[in-house]
Design a protein around this nucleic acid. Structure first.
Lengths: 215, 215
DNA sequence: CCCTCGCTAGACAAATTTGACTACCTGGAG
DNA sequence: CTCCAGGTAGTCAAATTTGTCTAGCGAGGG
């Protein structure tokens, strides 16, 4: 699965009640259009889809307060919250290769209690190591290494990435165990949404190198 | 873009002439269904699409020699070869975050002359470093670090991944410069396709951990 | 001989994703 | 007052991807 459902559920949840454009703006604020498939079409599609599936509740609302077509406001349901937490836990532990999945989960990890987050991250390390050993065992030819030619570089790359991911996760575990950040039930949460009417400081002028045009 | 077009073009090219099922089998042999979106539907779709675009030439062929519906054989055209090399070069240099893109390119890198592959890989390192510095500059808040809360971990993760990818690429460059592998124009190429009728040694019994079902 | 199993080769509907486009309103320039 | 740029809130067709289904054929058991 892609990260979009987690992102959209998380955005709606932080607002309490949000319309599509608000979600879209939050995701842009988080830079999600850069590192995930959070484009307008996907966002609106996910909202409608999840509303149909009972994860979100859609309120039909009168014309917008600020121009544009009438808008629909969404609220997360109990089943939606359940799904949100399920996805969050899954994405924190899964070694998914696609970094957008982990990135999205990191953004929301503080919605869990500190102890649970730690347990999930440790599970993540375990899974990476398991994956690593299954790959090395499987792709090590009996007739000695080197039989694979340049194809061996592929496995080499995978293993290197896995090791690097595990190492980084261990570092995160230490920081979290050392008291960093504010987790669920520990006081004022860190909120990363734009208030109604607040300007997006990162609205344009994006971070990445595909910026040779414009400006 | 995803890796599928490069994979399919590369598979057809190595065979000279191939039908969909052969391509599908090669990709499974390479484990591509594990690390990319190379599922039957996508493969057949890519074949048809690229035939329509003139990158492949479709021959309608009589009923298959081994049961099943009649099959279509494909051959790569000049424009297809051009596209293949373009994609290959692009995927070797692009820091795309999605590892399937690089993985596919690694599998075919020996289709280029050694010197060119080296140049592309060096360009890759340069791009990663550029990306890294644009991200760190952009997301370092003026009012000191730590303002980002746990969101800073996301950037931390990206930068760590980029560094790890650059380091690995440097290692590959050294190995290639040191004479490893057989590149274009250097004699018998390493071929990674299944001959007609050859059994796929990795047909089942897949490497990854999502194997708790079956068997 | 008949029947089922498994392989071959692909088709297909449904879901998702992409990228471009629309329509409405507001504020300010002229 | 009028016009137009720009923000708001989406829609839509087309492309792609996913997952499942089909139909033909040969091998082998009973």
């Amino acid at each position: 699965m892609s990260a979009i459902r987690l992102l959209v559920l998380g955005a709606v949840r932080q607002h309490g009640r949000a319309h599509g454009y608000q979600v879209r703006n939050d995701l842009e604020y988080w830079g999600a259009h850069e590192w995930s498939n959070a484009k307008p079409g996907s966002i609106y599609h996910a909202l409608k889809q999840m509303a149909k599936q009972g994860l979100l509740l859609a309120h039909e609302i009168a014309p917008s307060t600020a121009g544009g077509p009438p808008r629909v406001e969404y609220e997360i349901t109990a089943r939606g919250t359940e799904e949100y937490l399920t996805l969050l836990r899954a994405y924190l532990t899964a070694y998914d290769q696609r970094p957008d999945v982990l990135t999205a989960a990191l953004g929301f990890m503080v919605d869990l209690p500190r102890e649970e987050a730690l347990a999930l991250l440790e599970e993540r390390v375990r899974r990476i190591e398991e994956w690593r050993s299954s790959v090395t065992e499987y792709y090590t030819p009996e007739d000695g290494p080197g039989q694979l030619g340049h194809i061996g570089e592929i496995m080499n790359f995978w293993v290197h990435s896995a090791d690097s991911g595990a190492e980084w996760t261990r570092g995160l575990i230490e920081r979290v165990r050392g008291g960093a950040y504010t987790f669920a039930g520990e006081g004022d949460p860190f909120v990363g949404v734009l208030a109604e009417g607040q300007e997006n400081p990162f609205g344009s002028g994006r971070p990445h190198a595909d910026d040779q045009d414009a400006r």
